[in-house]
Design a protein around this nucleic acid. Structure first.
Lengths: 135, 135
DNA sequence: AATAAACCTATTGATATAGTAGGAAGGCGT
DNA sequence: ACGCCTTCCTACTATATCAATAGGTTTATT
């Protein structure tokens, strides 16, 4: 189940994409529009800034702003960034130690296939697609 | 992320399917073969029995047994039974109260599509497919 | 009667989630 | 220079879920 962190992140990105013309957007505005606690959003935006998904400017007239065009943001990237790996089982996470039962595991292929499907889906859609519904 | 409950359940079902000729299989045998704690497996098998996925027989010579042919078990059913809904977000679970922002929600369609893909994948594979690799 | 097995209720420790609190640092307008 | 606004940073907390454990009761077979 995808947690609020990734869902909120996505909603923030959409919000910013819809207000690119307005320059820097304060966190307060986003939080109000989206009905999310300011303090909690702060944590989420912190990671997005750290990963250069968006930039923040402090002080009066400051706020947040996208660093790329909406079409350049992959939905899968945003989710993985805030949520961690989307792997359906722990043995398929990037940092998982190789499973000793790997060769005999009948379910491994199932999870791998589902992992692939998931990846293909979320990496085939951009923020622009999401907003325009072209997917 | 799919939890151990559903993953263990699947492994138990596979184990039982591979030993259908041996009559009732004691929990201890399954736990030993799969390397899972007996006590924890008990909890999982309890739900599977309650939902008629398999039947248990008490007493000496007892154990667990499938109630259908492996081809009659849908993987998605087994997962949902042990894990609860596979919905990617809480607002898409069967018992979710209708979201007030439903009409404006830009991400709703994304989650619905992914939910559909997930459903199609796991409901298109049976226990028999899983064992034979025919999927 | 002894034994072996499923069945049942309750408890625990660890971890993740969602959110809160308070302040420090930086940039802007007057 | 000063005050204001806003991001940035560290730490804390309550709640829920996950994974597992413990101990006992019932049922069937030999």
């Amino acid at each position: 189940m995808i947690s609020t962190k990734a869902r909120y992140a996505l909603r923030v990105m959409i919000d910013l994409a819809q207000h690119t013309a307005d320059g820097y957007i304060p966190l307060k505005d986003i939080a109000n529009r989206q009905g999310i606690s300011e303090k909690y959003l702060e944590i989420i935006l912190k990671t997005l800034v750290k990963e250069r998904m968006l930039k923040g400017l402090r002080g009066k007239g400051g706020g947040y702003m996208l660093t790329r065009a909406p079409g350049e943001y992959i939905i899968g990237e945003i989710i993985e960034l805030t949520e961690g790996s989307m792997a359906p089982v722990s043995c398929l996470t990037p940092d998982a130690e190789p499973c000793p039962k790997k060769e005999d595991c009948i379910t491994l292929r199932l999870w791998q296939k589902y992992d692939q499907i998931t990846h293909d889906f979320f990496y085939g859609i951009t923020l622009e697609d999401l907003i325009n519904g072209t997917y």
